[in-house]
């Protein structure tokens, strides 16, 4: 078991190439996230309301100009990190994106921030030099130890597995067995944020029980299957991506910023291995 864990943490296949691919994937996903954040004047116009509700009139929030400047420079840093894979650019982008995300959450700090995995992944991978692959000026870089690159990849994979596990724990602890047996929560979500397809499925009340059970089953099993490695991790991630695509087709909840990372996070290594064997 220890040997398997050691393999998982420190010997991911071709970690430098994969870390570089994840870097490019993250740059695309986070850039789109930043581009689609609410405009700065929106936060500014509600600044006094936020401060009054929080009982903190002196609360320091970014001005619209500061926020928009930060948004633009974050995208610039992300582009620099994507192009070079250098640590300075990665850590700068991580610090900027963290400040932006934190600013967005000030409107309602108790609410879960559903994309903070992007902050964590950017900080973890940005702290490494991934300039050995898919980067300009590769000779000038000092790529991090492949064992550390492997560890970063493993951490991100485990984060995803833990995310699903947390979702299951939360439903079972706070929703209980009735969450599974009635299917009402997912049916209500489909009623309120459903697409045309979701609204047609809404009529089939029984179906939502099975969808609820399947959802929690996937969430519980993802992490152990990931660690065991059987069935193939690619298949497990494919099932999870299929789950999100199904959710996006029936509700307006795409969770795109998670599963669009799966191509590089879960599906890339084996492809590279195959390519190497064929060469």
């Amino acid at each position: 078991m220890f040997r398997r864990l050691d393999q998982f943490l420190f010997h991911q296949p071709d970690p430098r190439r994969q870390a570089a691919a994840i870097r490019m994937n993250l740059v695309a996903v986070i850039s789109l996230t930043v581009a689609k954040l609410p405009p700065g004047d929106f936060f500014e116009e509600h600044r006094d309301t936020v401060a009054a509700l929080a009982g903190d009139e002196q609360r320091r929030m970014l001005t619209a100009k500061e926020y928009e400047t930060l948004r633009a420079t974050t995208v610039a840093s992300l582009a620099a990190w994507g192009a070079t894979g250098r640590r300075a650019a990665g850590l700068t982008a991580a610090a900027q994106f963290a400040r932006l995300s934190q600013h967005v959450t000030t409107l309602h700090p108790k609410l879960w921030s559903y994309n903070s995995h992007l902050n964590v992944f950017l900080a973890v991978l940005g702290a490494l030099d991934t300039s050995s692959d898919l980067a300009l000026g590769r000779r000038a870089g000092r790529p991090s130890d492949p064992r550390l690159q492997s560890l970063a990849i493993a951490f991100m994979q485990l984060y995803v597995g833990m995310l699903y596990f947390q979702s299951a724990v939360s439903k079972l602890k706070y929703g209980g067995v009735s969450w599974l047996s009635t299917g009402r929560t997912l049916r209500a979500a489909t009623a309120l944020t459903g697409t045309g397809l979701g609204h047609r499925l809404y009529e089939r009340k029984e179906l939502f029980r099975y969808i609820s059970i399947a959802t929690v089953a996937l969430e519980v099993l993802f992490l152990p299957l990931l660690l065991v490695g059987k069935p193939d991790r690619r298949l497990v991630a494919l099932a999870a991506a299929g789950f999100h695509i199904g959710a996006a087709a029936t509700t307006k909840i795409p969770f795109w910023h998670l599963w669009t990372l799966y191509p590089t996070l879960f599906w890339l290594p084996e492809r590279r291995e195959r390519g190497r064997r064929a060469a």
């Binding site: 879960w112 939360s170 602890k173 706070y174």
Partner: peptide, 9 residues
Amino acid sequence: CSYNMFNRT
């Protein structure tokens, strides 16, 4: 993040 979305019946 607790990932507690839709966690109530």
